[in-house]
């Protein structure tokens, strides 16, 4: 499915540019995007190192474990395939917390770390494990309590009340997250390997 979507976006984009007599646009877009990909990754090196370093301190101090214990009961229900003492729980919880607080650039390092831990417990390294899918479902639909970026945009645009959309955002993300959890549960039951 990813292969198909990737191909359709690329081929469809090129076709439309061609039909509109704007072929040179394709070259420019492709090269610019390729450059951007590396830029994003380079920027991520710093943020990634910072948060992985802080997380390592938190781990050694027992903070990650306390966090895991606090959220353990809920999170363990969501990931029945993981062992109760799985090392993936720490980064999973930190990622979800960062997402909730709208700390997008802190969420990614924890998320990638969680994927690495989940991959260690994955019997089939080419194929997504149910725990990974559950994690990504939660990650992409996670409740946002502080949509910091968009509040900033609203402030700059001169909004009378930049934070008034927090309530609607929390409600919409709560519904999306509920959907993700239910859909994940249903598909997981249907799609046993």
């Amino acid at each position: 499915m990813v292969n198909l979507i990737w191909l359709i976006m690329l081929a469809f984009g090129i076709l439309i540019s061609t039909v509109r007599g704007n072929v040179s646009q394709v070259t420019e877009s492709a090269l610019k995007a390729a450059e951007l990909g590396v830029e994003v990754a380079i920027e991520l090196i710093g943020v990634m190192s910072l948060w992985l370093g802080i997380m390592h301190i938190a781990e050694k101090a027992g903070l990650v474990q306390s966090l895991a214990k606090l959220f353990g009961p809920i999170i363990k229900k969501l990931f029945p395939s993981l062992k109760p003492d799985s090392k993936a729980f720490g980064p999973i919880i930190m990622n979800l917390c960062a997402n909730m607080l709208g700390l997008g650039n802190a969420a990614t390092p924890f998320g990638l770390k969680a994927m690495q831990e989940l991959q260690k417990e994955n019997p089939n390294p080419d194929v997504a494990s149910p725990a990974m899918i559950t994690f990504l479902a939660l990650n992409t639909s996670c409740i946002t309590i502080i949509p910091a970026t968009i509040i900033g945009v609203r402030m700059k645009a001169g909004s009378v009340n930049p934070t008034e959309i927090i309530g609607t955002t929390i409600f919409a993300t709560a519904c999306a997250m509920t959907t993700a959890v239910c859909a994940d549960y249903i598909f997981r039951k249907r799609d046993r390997l």
């Binding site: 499915m1 899918i133 959907t179 994940d184």
Partner: peptide, 18 residues
């Protein structure tokens, strides 16, 4: 980032939530 090639139902779940 971890070399997964088969996403199984992950995309369906994510897009449904969206």
């Amino acid at each position: 980032s971890v070399g997964i090639k088969k996403y199984r139902y992950a995309l369906k779940v994510g897009l449904l939530a969206d």
